[in-house]
Design a protein around this nucleic acid. Sequence first.
DNA 1: CGACTGATTGAAAGTGGTCAACAAAAGTGG
DNA 2: CCACTTTTGTTGACCACTTTCAATCAGTCG
Lengths: 228, 228
Amino acid sequence: MRSEDRAEIRSLGLFRNMTTANFDAMMHAAYAQEFPAQLQLVRQGSRATFLHVLVEGSIELFSEWQGRDSTMAILRPVSSFILAACIRDAPHLMSARTLEASRVVLIPSADLRAAFRRDADFAVDVVEELARCYRSMVRHTKSLKLRSARERLAAYLLKLSVRNGNAAGFALPYEKRLIASYLGITPESLSRALKALAAEGVHVQGTRVTLTDRDRLAALAGLDELMD
Amino acid sequence: MRSEDRAEIRSLGLFRNMTTANFDAMMHAAYAQEFPAQLQLVRQGSRATFLHVLVEGSIELFSEWQGRDSTMAILRPVSSFILAACIRDAPHLMSARTLEASRVVLIPSADLRAAFRRDADFAVDVVEELARCYRSMVRHTKSLKLRSARERLAAYLLKLSVRNGNAAGFALPYEKRLIASYLGITPESLSRALKALAAEGVHVQGTRVTLTDRDRLAALAGLDELMD
DNA sequence: CGACTGATTGAAAGTGGTCAACAAAAGTGG
DNA sequence: CCACTTTTGTTGACCACTTTCAATCAGTCG
C-alpha cells in the first residue's frame, strides 16, 4: 500500500485515536486497490469480509429487489463503508459500485473486530462512525417520508450550493439518473421537477445549475438541522 | 428500580456480557419509570441525556417536519432506543412517545459511555446493537424505495402472520393510522389498499385479518431476507 | 346518551410513473 | 478525426396511484 494512503487512513476520524501498535496490526493484512468505473465491489446478500475505505473516487451504495434498484447513498473520499455488516458479520443489505475510477483500502473484518476489542479509543471511534452512518440513513428516510419529490429536490440543490461555498451557480456532481434514484424518483420526474423549480429561481442547462432566488427555494425546501 | 426490571435488563443482549461490576456502576444512577399512553418521552432536536430501555408496553419513534409527521419505527419490549444519539451526544433526530402505558428504564448516557470505555465485551455488544438498528433502518428505507405501497402492505401482513406463528388469522397489533404512517401512506390509502388486497386473499374486519391465499400474497410481497 | 376518536367511502385533484419518441452527449472503432 | 453506436436526458401523452377534502359510519368512553 502507498504510504500516503496509509497516512490518509490513519488521519481518518475512525483511525486517528487508536494506538500505533494496534493500527499497524490491523493494517497488516490490509491492501489498497484501484478499481475502474462502474465496477461492483459488493453484492448485497454476500458476506462481509473486508471493511472498505474509499480513498479516491466515488462509490454508490444501492439496493436491488425484483429487478428494480435504488441508490441508497453516494460516498466521497475519505469514508468507510459497510461497517455495520463487518461488525455483525452478516450479509450485506446493500451493494456497492464505483462511479468513477476509485482507490479503495480493504481491511479484513476479523482484524477490525480484533482491534476493536483491544483498543478502547478505537472502539469509541468505531461506534461513533457507525452512529454517524445510522443518523445519515435516518435523515434520508425522513426526507423520503416527510417531503414531496419537489421538496427533496429543492433541499438537495441547496445542499449542493452549500457544499460549493453557497455559490449561486454550480455543476451537478453526478448523472441526473443517479440523483433521481437517490431522491427516490424516476429520471423523467427529475427532469420535470427541475423545470417546475424554475418558479423558485432554479435554472438548469446540462449539468450547470443556477439559483436566482435562494429564499424562495429555501422556503420550499425547508432545510432542517435534523434532516439535512 | 424493581429487581425484576434489573434482571430483565441484565439479560438483554446489550448488557448480558458486561462484568457485574460495570453493570452495577452503570445502573447506579439509572431508574425505571412508568409512563401513561400517548406521552412524549423524547422530542426531536433535544439532547440525549439517557439511554432508554423499553421493558413493558410499546413505543413509537416518529419524526416531524413542517407540521407533518411520520412513524419511523415501532418498538416492543425489551429493546433499547436512541442509542445513536447517546453515543454521539447529539440532538435526537426522532421523537418518541408511548403507544400504551409503558415501563422504561433510563440510563444516563454519560454512564453508558463510561461503561463502554471500561468494558470491551460491553463495547462489542453496544456496537452490535447499533449495527442492528442501522440495518433495521436500511431495511425500512429499502422497502420505501423499492416497493409500492401495496407491496409494502402485503409484506407487512405476511410478517405479522409469521410473528403469530404463521397463523392465517391474526389481529392488527396497532391502530391502522399508525400502521399507515409506518408504511408511508395515509390512513385512507391503507383502507383502500387493504380492500384491494382482497384479490390476494386478504380479508379484514375491524382489526381482524385473515389470509386465505398465502402464496398469492407472498408473490406480491416478495419477502426478502435482505429487506424483511 | 352524546361526544370523541378512528375508520371507511366517495369525489376530485394532484403527483409521479410508464411508455414511446426524440434529442443530446458520450464513448467506440475505423 | 469522423462516423457510428450507446447511453443519457428531455418531452409528450396517458395512466395509475395516492392524497385531499368532506361526509358518514363505528366504536369507545365519560
